[in-house]
């Protein structure tokens, strides 16, 4: 295990940011810390980097006790949401910073900087100032800068949070490919479940200063430990007192045993999918997502009476905190 976090507590005044958090982050993998804003995931990342001190607990990085090491001695690369580019230095100087601090020979520095700029596709911008780069380019520069010192672990704090949707998606794919090339243990913080599911080998779900679940994207999606994880990893709706994904609800136009009876109150086409709101007899709304073909086939229309059942084999979770999984 590359990073061992044991019993870490952190408070800011009265606010409990982390409450007795323990987690192991595996070597060489891409791990996401996923959770809502204010849940403590960034604080955990900053504690691993040494930019914040834990009130209690220990941090171990690649077998080295790091709890009381200052950040410059931990050999971690850190990438900030807002890039933290050194504004008065050009791109090459930014990337060279960590190497110059380590007093590497000039020729080595130049070779390594050139290599990294190629890796992040910025070789033609070496002499630009950060202000002359786009957000995505700045973040790639920040990544190259962090990788330059050959860190034991690479930590990214909401690395794509400040970028627009299209660039974010590109960089996400690029980060995944980069990781497959470089293989450095990487931890990134995100509140975007799609980003975590798409990029990470392993996801740590953090909420309210506690770890809700650790697992691969498939495990988390298919076997959520509780209703929080289930609702955070994708859309959910309530059917008959259980939580279920809207695309796992079957809509029948004829009576079915044990089905929830309701009326279609809203029908919305969004691209390839059709979002249906069904108001059940007890008055609560059930959200259902169908493909366009399914919707057309069942001849759905607003005002129609329908019978809702869970899709066979669909995942449902009792709509209570920390409930078990039934499938």
């Amino acid at each position: 295990m590359s990073i061992e976090v044991r019993n870490v507590d952190k408070r800011f005044g009265d606010f409990v940011a982390l409450d007795d958090v323990s987690v192991s982050i595996p070597t060489g993998q891409l791990t996401a810390l996923l959770g809502p804003s204010g849940g403590g995931k960034s604080t955990l990342l900053r504690i691993i980097a040494g930019l914040e001190n834990a009130d209690d607990g220990t941090i171990e990085i690649e077998g080295v006790e790091a709890t009381h090491l200052p950040p410059q001695k931990r050999n971690v690369g850190f990438v900030f949401q807002h890039y933290a580019a050194f504004k008065h230095m050009n791109v090459a100087k930014n990337v060279a910073f960590g190497l110059e601090i380590r007093k590497r020979p000039k020729a080595d520095v130049e070779r390594r900087v050139d290599e990294l700029l190629r890796l992040v596709h910025l070789q033609q911008f070496a002499h630009r100032l950060p202000a002359q780069l786009s957000g995505g380019q700045r973040q790639r520069m920040a990544l190259a800068r962090a990788l330059a010192v050959e860190p034991t672990v690479l930590l990214l704090d909401e690395p794509f949070g400040a970028l627009d949707a299209k660039v974010r998606k590109e960089l996400r794919d690029w980060l995944r490919r980069l990781h497959d090339e470089v293989h450095v243990t990487t931890v990134f913080v995100t509140h975007d479940q799609e980003e975590a599911l798409e990029v990470a080998d392993e996801i740590v779900v953090i909420n309210d200063g506690r770890i809700e679940q650790v697992g691969t994207p498939d495990q988390l999606y298919d076997e959520p430990a509780n209703d929080f994880v289930m609702s955070f990893l994708g859309d959910v709706t309530r059917l008959n007192g259980v939580m279920i994904r809207p695309h796992d609800v079957d809509v029948n136009s004829t009576p079915v045993d044990g089905a929830v009876v309701g009326t279609v109150t809203r029908l919305l086409r969004v691209g390839f999918e059709v979002r249906v709101t069904v108001t059940a007899e007890d008055g609560h709304d059930v959200a259902v997502v169908l493909s366009r073909a399914e919707a057309r086939g069942s001849g759905l229309a607003e005002g129609a009476t329908v019978w809702l059942t869970p899709h066979r084999g669909a995942l449902t979770v009792d709509a209570r905190p920390a409930a078990g999984v039934s499938a």
Binding site: G50, P70, P71, Q72, G77, K87, F97, R145, A146
Partner: peptide
């Protein structure tokens, strides 16, 4: 102080961070 934190994480000590960043 993000630039200073970045410098720290890249291995710069307090004095180096002050003079360089």
């Amino acid at each position: 102080d993000e630039q200073e934190q970045a410098a720290r994480s890249l291995g710069a000590g307090g004095a180096q961070t002050f003079w360089r960043i």
